Amino acid sequence: MTTFKKRWLVPVAMTVFAAYGNANTNTNTNTNTADRALEVVAHTSQAVWNAVAVDSAGKVYVSGPRWTGMKGPSVSRLDASGEPVAFPDARWNSDDASIPASQRFINVNALHQDDRGQLWIVDAGVTGFGGHVIPGGAKLVVVDVQSGKTVKVIVLDSTIAKDGSYIDDIRFNGDHAYLSDAGVPGIVVLDLKNGSMRRVLENTPATHAPADRDIILSGKVVRAPDGTALRVHSDPLETSIDGKWLYFAALEGPWYKVETRLLNDAALAPESLSASVQFWRDLPPVGGTAMDKQGNFYFSDLATDTLKRISVSGNIESIVSDPALHWVDAPAFDPQGRIYLPAAQVDRVGLFNGGTSKVQWPLKVFRLDVSKPSTR
């Protein structure tokens, strides 16, 4: 676990950044929060689904990394009864070591659709949480959801997915895609036209987990296997609706933004790009984000089991708060504008609890129509 300790964990005093400290107490109440109907789309007593996607036909896809202790397929499409079916097929979801790492899922961390309806599967390709990247394991698997066929596999070589990297999530803007690295801090810029990739913003504090911000859930600091307070570097990210900005943060926050035109400029000096990064928002620890078609920014406030929204006017409002929404990770919208919320309970898996799982089964994926008014 040497790499894990060096790159993921920062031994620090138990200090919580004052700007959000009061929000870091999980009250599990609906005070000042709209009561809305949470519909259970699927549930499982084996898998830890931390990501969800919904295609144009309304079919739901779920995934989770194996280091959580989950069983079953890494990536599934839910059938009509909500049961998971290996996607795109059983071979991709096999744990058969004779299959090359570039041709099977190792530790899938994210799902996201592009504007062509293709499903992009982000595989960190690591031996385990905080572990080493397996050669050929870190990759992007692109699947056509209509045919279920793999369109392409983009393997991230050792200059992009470094030893200790944990390629975390992906967002798109025109001819470029952006990925976060939660292990070795930085952002990866992928040119979708020519396939070239670059690591950027490695030496800016914006991609590094602050030393003085803890992840506190249910009144407890989330701790890594060695007992130190967990630190997760550049993790959630989102592009603005007009494509002008990339918003990004360490899991603990705060959030920053940078113009995508600068990220896309391969000739721009690293120091100039770093100097262009701007502070955006001081948000509490965020599990995952989603942007609706109107440009409203949704995020899961991990400390309070709450889905919140930053409206296009800039106001932050609580949409729904419920103990069942514990560690909502990577949400997604369906074509009808309903948001899907995978309550992954990541902090309760055995890895963060001395080897004993505290997960409250079954885990559930919820759906919420955010366009409907409060039922109160």
Rank of each mutant, 00 (worst) to 15 (best):
G219N: 09
A37E: 09
A324R: 15
E238M: 12
T15P: 00
R198W: 06
K59M: 05
A330V: 13
V52E: 14
L140T: 02
A224N: 13
G125P: 00
G128D: 13
R338W: 14
V328C: 13
G174V: 06
V188E: 07
G354C: 11
Q278F: 09
Q118D: 14
I215V: 14
L246T: 01
F297C: 01
W120S: 06
L307V: 12
I121Q: 08
D114Y: 01
P73G: 03
R261S: 07
S74G: 11
A110L: 00
L341V: 12
D157Q: 06
F87W: 12
R77W: 07
L268N: 05
S272E: 15
T3K: 04
L192Y: 06
T29S: 06
Y61F: 15
G253S: 05
L111G: 02
V200T: 13
G186H: 10
R91G: 02
D123E: 02
V349Y: 03
G195A: 12
R91I: 10
D55T: 01
K244N: 02
A344M: 10
A266K: 09
L368I: 07
D115I: 08
P362E: 08
A266W: 03
T207Q: 12
S94W: 04
W8Y: 10
Q345T: 06
G337D: 11
R104I: 02
R7I: 05
R77T: 03
E238H: 03
E259K: 00
N109I: 09
S76E: 11
W245T: 00
A97Y: 12
V145W: 01
V141N: 05
G227L: 07
T150M: 10
F105R: 02
V232M: 12
V346C: 09
G69T: 06
R198G: 11
L217I: 15
A34C: 14
W49E: 07
E83I: 07
K308P: 10
A343V: 12
E202D: 14
G128A: 05
